[in-house]
Amino acid sequence: MNRRVYLAAVGTAASAGLAGCSSALSVIESDPCSGGDCHIGMNRTEFLPDSYEVSVGDTVVWKNTSEADHTVTAYDELIPDEAAYFASGGFENQEDAYNAWHGERGGGLGSRETYEHTFEVPGTYEYFCIPHERANMTGEIVVTE
């Protein structure tokens, strides 16, 4: 058998097989909460989806759908004035959340762990993941009446 023909055939078959795997992975990663046990998933450096709309009084559930540890941490200055601050770990403000994470990884969500928060005030709430903030792991919740 001609070695070049064989290698070309094997390479094409392998590429086709990998292409199928990568497209399946993309489907899984684009909607990690399709099973209904969460609203927002987390991959290595993204909230999925990164923007989510709810009504006043709704509870949002985040689920760490990756193998990396993550946090859900509101930006103090980027939530409505009357709104309650939220962060995995139950911290009162962004500084406390930072200190807890950098001290003993406080507020961290391990793989498959969840965090939930009920939104009582309309407006836009911006949040982030402390260990992946530099990678721009941010999201927003838009709460309507």
Rank of each mutant, 00 (worst) to 15 (best):
C33F: 01
C33N: 06
S34M: 04
G35H: 03
G35F: 00
G35E: 10
G36S: 11
G36V: 09
D37N: 12
C38S: 07
C38L: 04
C38A: 03
C38W: 00
H39S: 12
H39C: 06
H39N: 14
H39F: 09
H39I: 02
I40N: 10
I40A: 06
I40L: 07
G41T: 07
G41Y: 06
G41C: 13
G41S: 11
M42N: 04
M42Q: 13
M42K: 03
R44V: 08
T45L: 08
T45D: 15
F47V: 04
F47H: 05
P49T: 02
D50I: 03
D50G: 13
D50C: 04
S51F: 00
S51R: 12
S51E: 14
S51C: 00
Y52A: 00
Y52T: 00
E53L: 02
S55T: 06
V56A: 14
G57P: 08
D58R: 05
D58S: 14
T59S: 13
V60K: 09
V60C: 08
W62D: 06
K63F: 03
N64G: 11
N64L: 11
N64T: 02
T65V: 05
S66I: 07
E67V: 07
E67N: 07
A68T: 04
A68Q: 06
A68I: 03
D69F: 04
H70Q: 11
T71A: 00
T71N: 01
T73R: 13
A74E: 06
A74T: 05
A74K: 02
Y75L: 10
D76R: 01
D76Q: 14
E77T: 10
E77K: 10
E77L: 05
E77N: 13
E77W: 00
E77D: 15
E77S: 12
L78C: 05
L78E: 15
I79L: 11
I79D: 02
I79A: 09
P80T: 11
P80A: 04
P80G: 11
D81Y: 08
E82M: 02
E82H: 15
A83D: 00
A84Q: 14
A84S: 15
A84I: 00
F86G: 11
F86D: 00
F86R: 03
A87K: 01
A87I: 04
A87E: 04
A87T: 06
S88Q: 12
S88R: 09
G89Q: 12
G89S: 14
G89M: 10
G90A: 07
G90V: 01
G90K: 02
G90R: 03
F91Y: 15
E92A: 15
E92F: 01
N93S: 10
N93V: 04
N93E: 03
Q94W: 03
Q94N: 12
Q94H: 09
E95P: 02
D96A: 15
A97F: 01
A97Q: 03
A97G: 06
Y98A: 05
Y98M: 11
Y98C: 10
N99S: 11
A100M: 10
W101Y: 15
H102W: 15
H102P: 02
H102G: 07
G103E: 14
G103A: 13
G103L: 12
E104T: 05
G106C: 12
